[in-house]
Every structure is written in structure tokens, then in C-alpha cells.
């Protein structure tokens, strides 16, 4: 792949010093092959979804330029999660040491096992849309719309900007 593709990664953690985990994940993303971290959002604190009792999450979004294909990038993200101590089994709303979601990749739209692009959860998650709007307000997510507009459709309930 000779062309660099823009990709946005949602980063989250609520275990074992979540803030440090998120920062560590950001610096590990910068070490992926043929990939550069271009933009990193401020950190947000968010209340967990669902009925499970668990600590608050720390969230951020990272904007990358990469020459990896979307599948290869996803594989790298999963490997990075594992390397950071996340177990194989993925509870949808359970606590986790690190969570790396491929939110959007270029203008790709696909729906296959394990990889849906853009990430279908974007539109309902303020902990994705707020940090994403901080770094790429004009981003037009294929099939979903402009980030600023999507952000306007969710509330900031349960979300708090972490002081740097």
C-alpha cells in the first residue's frame, strides 16, 4: 500500500491505573509499523455502560496515518491489547485493562466478522464522539455524517474532561 490512510482509534481502560494504560497504549500505537500517530485527544473520564459494577473509564481517541490495510491494522490492535494484558474473552460491557476500537479507516465501509467499518458504536457513544470532535471535528464518517453533527446528537452525560 503506497498511500497513507487516515484511521481513528478509540482507546479506553478502567483497570490498573486507567490513565496510565491509555497513555501507554497511545505510545504503543506510535510504534506500529508504517504508522504514525498524528493527533491525540485529551483524556475523558466516563461512567461505564450496563449493569455491571465497575470503575469509571478513561477514554481518548487517536488519529493515525497508516500504510497497513484495515484488517492488518485490526490484527495489530488485537495483538497490542493482548500484549497489554487483556484476556482473549471479550465481555461487551465488562471492565478491561485496555480497549482499542478501530473507529474509522479511510472511507472504507465494510461489514464482516470481527470488522465493521465505520465502527457502529460511534453514533451512540459520547466518550468516542467528544474526544473525536476535539481532534477531527470536520471528519465525515462514511455513511454516518460529520463528527461535529454526530456529537450534537448525544449528551455529555457521565462524561468529564480529565485535566491534563
Amino acid at each position: 500500500m503506497l498511500i497513507w490512510q487516515p484511521a481513528y482509534i478509540g482507546v479506553g481502560s478502567n483497570l490498573e491505573d486507567p490513565r496510565a494504560q491509555v497513555l501507554r497504549a497511545c505510545s504503543r500505537l506510535a510504534q506500529l509499523p508504517t504508522t504514525r500517530v498524528m493527533l491525540t485527544s485529551p483524556l475523558y473520564l466516563s461512567r461505564p455502560f450496563g449493569s455491571i459494577q465497575q470503575p469509571d473509564f478513561v477514554n481518548a481517541v487517536v488519529g493515525l496515518l497508516t500504510r497497513l490495510e484495515s484488517r492488518a491494522l485490526l490484527t495489530r490492535l488485537r495483538a497490542l491489547e493482548a500484549a497489554m494484558g487483556r484476556p482473549e474473552r471479550r465481555d461487551k460491557w465488562g471492565p478491561r485493562i485496555i480497549d482499542l476500537d478501530l473507529l474509522s479507516y479511510g472511507r472504507e465501509r465494510r461489514s464482516e466478522s470481527g470488522l465493521t467499518l465505520p465502527h457502529p458504536g460511534i453514533v451512540e457513544r459520547n466518550f468516542v464522539l467528544y474526544p473525536l470532535a476535539d481532534i477531527a471535528p470536520d471528519l465525515d464518517i462514511p455513511g454516518l455524517g460529520r463528527v461535529t453533527e454526530l456529537k450534537g446528537r448525544v449528551t455529555s452525560e457521565g462524561l468529564r474532561l480529565l485535566s491534563p
Binding site: W4, P6, M38, L65, I135, D140
Partner: peptide, 14 residues
């Protein structure tokens, strides 16, 4: 160019 790519979600021909 890289900065523009990331903030506008553009492909980079670099």
C-alpha cells in the same frame, strides 16, 4: 500534509 490528513481524514500521498 500529515496534519491535514489526520484532521480532515484525507488519504496521504506522501
Amino acid at each position: 500534509a500529515r496534519r491535514l490528513c489526520a484532521s480532515l481524514s484525507a488519504q496521504g500521498v506522501l
